[in-house]
Amino acid sequence: MLERKDIDNLAVLARLDLSDAEKDKLQKDMESILGYISELQKAPAVEESHKSSDYSLKNVMREDGEAYESGVNTEAILAEAPKVKNGYFAVKKILDN
């Protein structure tokens, strides 16, 4: 069901550098996990009329406005960044000319 090229594609989508050995193992593991979760197809459909109108979830809003005063956390946050330049996160050039 899962081919090696599927694993290669997923790794690209997920931006993960994986060794060939890990990909082999993943192909096997995912086959067995996907087999197990395919059980779901046997579950009955939800009847719309019986939908629980969410007992647990509730949106909580706050007033519009700044959650934090601008700049108060900048220094502490940038201190965690691997590379910083002039108060910004630094990354490699993204666009070619």
């Binding site: 599927d6 997923l10 989508l13 993960l16 890990e22 993943l26 995912m30």
Partner: peptide, 18 residues
């Protein structure tokens, strides 16, 4: 991401992506 995440995290990211 390949080096920072542990094996189980990588496995679950792959499953989720699928």
């Amino acid at each position: 991401r390949g080096a920072g995440f542990g094996r189980e995290v990588r496995r679950r990211i792959m499953l989720g992506t699928y």
